[in-house]
Structure formats: C-alpha cells, structure tokens
C-alpha cells in the first residue's frame, strides 16, 4: 500500500511501486483528466504538478513520490490557473482537447515561474507538449493573454 496526496486528498493505492503515476491516477484513483499519449516522455499529455513543478506522470514511478503533493488538471487552482483557464476558454484554444490538460499544466508551470514569457520562453516550456490538432498558435496567444491578465 502506497500513500499518495492528490489534489489535497490522501489516498492509498494498492499497486506496484514501479507503476507510473499516470496509471495510478487514471486506473486506481479515477482521475482521468490526466491523459496518456505516448508513455515515453515525448508528448506531455500526462503532465501533472509535483509540489508545483510540472512532471511527466508517465515517467514518475509511484514508489518515488513519497510525500510530494500531486496536483492534476482536476484540482489545479489559484490565480495563475484561473488566468490560464479563462484565457484558454476566451480564445477557444481546444479542438479535440485530449492534449489540453497537459498543455494547461505546463502553461501554469511556466507562468508560475515567469510572469511575462517571451515567444522563445514559450517555445522552451511548451515544446514537450504535443498537440496533434495543431492548436499551438492559440496556445501561444492564450499564454500571452493569461500573462497580461495577471500583470
């Protein structure tokens, strides 16, 4: 039995410590907002926050998490999260939407560290998040918009 704190709630999970956090969230804790896209750290669909830092849940073994706090798209909150969500909605960024949990978690990570990211900063922080629907132009615009609204 492993203890995991997800979105402020303590859970115990009966699973192999080698299991990636992605599958523990999706299959054991029914937090399906975090998505599976590649399983090999190439797409970012599984991005969650570990103590506020974006990580790839498909590469994070549950046995290694310890007391770190896990935040997922379902639970992420605060000023930056609100600004990002509202920019995403205002610009109708989503298409299929499948990558967007990860995009949003990465964008919140970026804006939490860097209040006024340049295009190059956005490239750097977001290049690991694939959007097969190609919504990049709006993602970029939404990040700038969120930064403006937070300023």
């Amino acid at each position: 039995m492993l203890k995991l704190t997800v979105n402020g709630v303590a859970h115990t999970v009966d699973a192999d410590p080698e299991m990636p956090l992605l599958w523990a969230l999706r299959d054991h804790l029914n937090q399906t907002g975090t998505k599976y896209g590649c399983g090999i750290a190439q797409c970012g669909a599984c991005t969650v926050h570990l103590d506020g830092q974006p990580v790839r849940a498909c590469q994070t073994r549950i046995g290694d998490i310890g007391a770190a706090k896990i935040t997922t798209i379902e639970g992420v909150s605060g000023k930056v999260a609100d600004a990002v969500r509202s920019a995403w909605r205002g610009l109708d960024v989503v298409q299929c939407g499948y990558c967007q949990s990860g995009q949003i978690m990465s964008a919140i990570g970026l804006l939490s560290e860097n209040a006024k990211p340049t295009d190059a900063d956005i490239d750097g922080a977001m290049d690991g998040n694939v959007c097969r629907c190609g919504t990049y132009q709006r993602i970029r615009a939404a990040i700038h918009e969120a930064a403006r609204s937070l300023a």
């Binding site: 999706r26 299959d27 029914n30 937090q31 399906t32 907002g33 975090t34 998505k35 599976y36 997922t72 798209i73 379902e74 969500r85 995403w88 909605r89 109708d92 960024v93 989503v94 939407g97 499948y98 967007q100 949990s101 949003i104």
Partner: peptide, 26 residues
C-alpha cells in the same frame, strides 16, 4: 463559443479512454 471549451480545460470531458464501468478489465 465552443460548447466543449469548459469541459476540455478542467479535466471533466470524458473520452472513451476515460470510461470506467463497474468491474471492468483492461
């Protein structure tokens, strides 16, 4: 505005990979 913008930005939109039926096996 798109009808799916809210559900697709808060993790509540359900895709078929998110289906969890009672007793299901993968």
């Amino acid at each position: 505005p798109r009808v799916d913008s809210v559900a697709k930005t808060d993790g509540t939109a359900i895709y078929s990979l998110d289906i969890r039926r009672p007793g299901q096996v993968t």
